[in-house]
């Protein structure tokens, strides 16, 4: 993957398992966002392919509709909270009654029930982030790509979102890829971890493995916070 002649990601080859929480960690500017954008077809890699469920992808739209990507800084439509969250259902042509039920469910999960009619542009930073989270899970994606989902939240909301992530995985068996540089968060919720360093995946390991006996010395340095970045 490259932007112009700047190579951003190279030699990435690994599997994410169904129903796991896979944390992608690494210093700032290392390519985490770019990687998630490739998975969601927003960027096109120069070489390589992605297989979903071991099949060649049946088409961008169909594959994309089975997943969702939560941006690091969510873009918010100039509409009500309800309309924002309902968007993914509406483009799928879901019936009105079901849309209402699903949106209310999603808003309940993120603790924004009762704010349906507020213009979403007037939400606080934390509320906006939670609304974007609701918008991303409302249509039950099989794969949920989360880019720093708790970066702008206070500790109470961080805990809440982390609980939601675990709950969704447990209840819906959603596969979750979580990009973050929050190492304590990885300890709390990840099943497996990949460390991305300067565009290269230096290690993929179970959470216990990576924290107790990392395979790469650079992983250890990064996890201990010794990495200079």
């Amino acid at each position: 993957m490259a932007f112009g002649n700047k190579e951003v990601l190279r030699n990435i080859n690994f599997e994410i398992k169904e129903g796991e929480i896979f944390a992608l960690i690494g210093p700032s500017g290392t390519g985490k966002t770019t990687f998630l954008r490739i998975l969601n077809f927003l960027e096109k890699p120069i070489k390589g392919e992605i297989k979903y469920n071991g099949m060649k992808t049946p088409g961008v739209l169909d594959t994309r509709r089975r997943m969702s990507l939560l941006f690091q800084t969510p873009a918010i439509f100039n509409k009500s909270v309800f309309e924002n969250v309902a968007y993914g259902l509406k483009v799928r042509g879901i019936e009105k009654k079901i849309v209402e039920k699903k949106v209310n469910e999603a808003l309940n999960i993120v603790g924004l029930a009762g704010m349906e009619n507020q213009n979403a542009r007037t939400l606080s930073g934390g509320e906006a982030q939670r609304m974007a989270f609701a918008r991303a899970i409302v249509y039950d994606p099989e794969i949920l790509l989360l880019d720093e989902p708790t970066a702008n939240l206070d500790p109470a909301n961080v805990t809440k979102i982390e609980e939601i992530i675990k709950r969704i995985r447990n209840e819906r068996r959603t596969t979750i890829v979580l990009a973050t540089h929050n190492i304590p968060q990885v300890r709390r919720i990840a099943d497996r971890v990949g460390i991305l360093l300067n565009g290269e995946l230096i290690e993929v390991n179970s959470k216990d493995g990576i924290f107790s006996k990392p395979k790469d010395a650079r992983s250890e340095a990064f996890l201990k916070g010794e990495m200079i970045y």
Binding site: L61, R64, F71, A75, F77, V91
Partner: peptide
């Protein structure tokens, strides 16, 4: 651009992206 990308991410088509842009 992020609004248009959000439309796509949420499963919208090219047409949905155009409609959303005009609405915005």
């Amino acid at each position: 651009q992020s609004i248009i990308e959000t439309v796509h991410t949420l499963g919208g088509t090219q047409k949905d992206a155009v409609i959303e842009t005009l609405k915005e």
